[in-house]
């Protein structure tokens, strides 16, 4: 067996000194993997099969009323922080009443605003997503800041600021579509 190098990455099973802080009204499924300096706000729902691990990048903040669906991964790089709405520094900040849908990957440094929708299997990495944005499915958002109220279509790869600035605004039909998806999960 090869001796492991000292630069080996920290492992998710290593116990962090800081335990998650969870509001009593939040629901965290027993089959989710939640560890490190994570704050979970009131009425947050964390579904089974999720992995929210603040081991390298920390802390994480998940604001009230937000929904984290099955198969979501939230993790952060050791370096890089975003400013949360409380003006403090976070590896990952997720605003209020936002939905992170199945199999999305939120990788810090990342900021996601209030009332956002992140579609199936989409990735947000080293980016800020403003309030009220809708990101559809199989999209990649990396190294950009998306202004509030923008719409990212399915399959889009948004990796430079110029693309982000030219995104269209959210329209009512987009909200209808996302509420359909939300209904699915609530059932």
């Amino acid at each position: 067996m090869v001796v492991s190098s000292p630069a080996a990455p920290p492992t998710p099973w290593s116990k962090s000194l800081v335990e998650p802080k969870i509001e009593p009204s939040a629901y965290v499924h027993s089959l989710s993997n939640l560890s490190g300096d994570v704050t979970i706000g009131a009425n947050v729902v964390i579904a089974p099969g999720t992995s929210i691990i603040a081991d390298e990048g920390a802390p994480f903040y998940i604001s009230e009323g937000t929904n984290i669906q099955d198969g979501v991964v939230i993790h952060g790089l050791e370096q890089g922080r975003v400013i949360g709405d409380d003006e403090k520094q976070y590896s990952v900040w997720i605003g209020k009443n936002t939905t992170i849908t199945h199999m999305s990957l939120i990788h810090g440094p990342a900021y996601i605003g209030d009332d956002c929708f992140i579609g199936f299997r989409s990735t947000v990495f080293n980016a800020r997503v403003g309030h009220g944005c809708i990101i559809m499915m199989h999209a990649l958002i990396q190294d950009v800041e998306i202004p509030a109220g923008k719409y990212v279509p399915s399959g889009a790869v948004i990796t430079n600021q110029q693309q982000a600035d030219y995104l269209p605004d959210v329209e009512s039909e987009d909200l209808e579509f996302t509420s359909l998806v939300l209904g699915m999960n609530d059932a």
Binding site: M136, M137, Y151, P153, I158, N160, Q162, L167, P168, F177
Partner: peptide
């Protein structure tokens, strides 16, 4: 890696310079 049954709005995203 494909996506089947996506009925969300299709928009062409701007490319780089």
């Amino acid at each position: 890696g494909s996506l089947i049954g996506d009925k969300s709005r299709i928009v062409v995203v701007q490319k780089t310079v």
